[in-house]
Simulated assay, not measured.
Amino acid sequence: MDKPAPLVWNDSLITGVPEIDAQHQILVHTLNEAGDRLSRGASVEDYEAISRELLSYALYHFETEEALMQEYGYEHSEAHDAHRHQAEHRGFTQQVIAVREQLKAGILTPPESLMAFLNDWLLRHIMLTDKRLAAFILARRSRAPGIG
C-alpha cells in the first residue's frame, strides 16, 4: 500500500469546544499512525491492534460528546440532530466491529479501503455533525458562564 496522505490538523477542523478539539486531535494522530503502520505491510496482529485502539478511543470520544449533548440539553432542543449524531457514532462503531469480525475470519480489509473509510468518516463527521453540536454548546456556554 502506498502511504496514505496524513490528515493534517488545521483551523478548519476546530469546533471551538476545547475537550472535543483535543480528542479530535488525538483521533487524527491515531489515524495517521494507523495509516503509517498499514502502509508498511501490516499483519493480522497489526490490524487487530489498530482496530482495537481505534475502537477504544472512538468509544471514549463518543461518550464525551454524548455526555456534552446531555449536559447542555442538545437531545431536547435539537432532538433530530442529536439522534442523527448518535446514529453516526453507532454506525462507525458497527463498521469497526465488522472489520474486527472479518479479522477473526482471516479476512483483511484492504488497507486503502480501510484508511479511506476512516479518514473520510472522521472529516465528514467533524465538519458536518460535530460543528453543529459545538455551535450549540458554545451558544449555551456563552449564555450561562461557568457551566461546562
Rank of each mutant, 00 (worst) to 15 (best):
P111G: 06
E33C: 08
K3M: 12
R100I: 13
A134Y: 11
E66Y: 08
E71K: 13
G41L: 08
L114I: 01
T129V: 10
D81Y: 11
L114D: 01
L38V: 05
H83I: 09
D130V: 10
Y74P: 07
I26C: 02
L108W: 00
H29M: 06
P110E: 03
H85T: 07
G148M: 08
T129P: 00
Q23R: 12
I14F: 01
L108R: 13
P110G: 01
Q86H: 11
V99M: 14
L103F: 05
P18Y: 08
D36E: 15
W121D: 00
Y60Q: 05
L59F: 00
T93M: 12
A98Q: 15
R143V: 00
S51G: 09
A98K: 15
L13N: 06
H89R: 05
A42P: 02
A42W: 05
E65P: 01
L59A: 02
H83M: 12
G41H: 07
H76W: 11
L138Q: 14
I137E: 14
M127N: 12
A5E: 15
D2T: 15
W121V: 01
G16Q: 08
L31D: 03
R141W: 01
V44G: 04
A139F: 03
Y72P: 09
H80S: 07
P18S: 13
R90T: 13
G106S: 01
N119W: 02
A34C: 04
L103S: 06
S43W: 03
A139S: 12
E53H: 15
G35D: 06
W9F: 05
E112C: 01
P111L: 04
E112T: 11
H61S: 01
T109Q: 06
A98W: 10
E33P: 00
R140Q: 15
P145F: 03
E112N: 05
L59V: 03
G73A: 05
M127P: 02
Q70M: 09
Q25M: 11
G35H: 08
E63T: 03
A67C: 03
F62Q: 02
L31G: 05
E19A: 13
D2L: 14
R37G: 02
L123M: 11
E78R: 15
A144T: 06
L133G: 09
R100D: 10
G35L: 07
H89M: 03
A98T: 14
D21E: 04
H83S: 14
T30W: 01
L123C: 04
H61Y: 02
D130P: 07
V17F: 14
P4G: 09
D11S: 06
Q70F: 07
D36A: 12
G106H: 02
E75N: 15
I50Y: 09
I137P: 11
L27D: 02
R52Y: 13
E88R: 10
L31W: 03
T64C: 06
G73P: 09
A67Y: 04
